[in-house]
């Protein structure tokens, strides 16, 4: 696909997202999306021959990828895995709350779109697991993984913890930096990284 074609596709999907965010009960129309994207209805049908359902479906998939890419980008310059996870949890929680608010305002078809970034979505699991695995491969190269830990084992565990805490941070005030760091260090990283936490003496694994 040429860049120009791809840009138009993305502009239409972006318009669909903003129409979904601003439209009142009943959802948006293709006319609104067309106006917002600065294209004609015919153009929308050229890119999405299935019409509104196809636009919603593809926008949902696109939005998942973008959601996690934005999150990854927001944390990529932070110096340690601990800081990346803390920031990721705080920002991710805010994004999720924003999309949960949307659920109350949009029609049932658009629910698919906003549900797409929710932690229960299976597609999301794979995306985060792969992302965590890349981070842990770097930690492994730096010699920081605990004995017996692999990037795969650690990535699956960190994916589960991240989604669980994003869905329900109950018991933790995410604006409290010290407390959030402490949770990341003990519950997320202590079993994964060598120096994550003041590890207790090796339990007797008899």
């Amino acid at each position: 696909m040429s860049t120009e074609v791809e840009e138009t596709r993305e502009r239409i999907m972006q318009a669909a997202v903003s129409c979904a965010e601003t439209s009142s009960v009943g959802g948006f129309s293709l006319e609104e999306v067309a106006a917002s994207a600065g294209v004609s209805r015919t153009t929308i049908y050229r890119y999405f021959p299935g019409g509104r359902p196809q636009l919603v479906q593809e926008t949902a998939t696109w939005e998942i990828a973008r959601f996690w890419a934005r999150l990854a980008e927001a944390v990529e310059d932070l110096p340690t895995l601990e800081e990346q996870l803390v920031a990721g949890l705080v920002i991710g929680r805010k994004l999720i709350q924003k999309s949960q608010l949307l659920e109350n305002m949009v029609d049932s078809e658009m629910l698919e779109l906003v549900a797409a970034v929710q932690p229960s979505e299976p597609l999301v699991h794979g995306v985060i697991r792969d992302y965590m695995r890349d981070l842990l491969i770097k930690e492994q190269a730096a010699g920081r993984l605990r004995p017996g830990m692999t990037p795969e084992l650690g990535a699956d565990y960190l994916m589960r913890m991240t989604l669980s805490w994003m869905a329900s941070p109950t018991g933790l005030d995410l604006s409290d930096q010290v407390a959030t760091h402490s949770v990341i260090r003990t519950q997320f990283l202590a079993g994964v990284l060598i120096d994550a936490s003041e590890a207790m003496p090796d339990p007797e694994l008899g």
Binding site: G148, G191, M200, P203
Partner: peptide
């Protein structure tokens, strides 16, 4: 439990 939980519970708390 051995892999992820026990390492996260620090000795002074036990």
């Amino acid at each position: 439990v051995r892999m992820f939980l026990l390492p996260g519970i620090s000795a002074p708390q036990l």
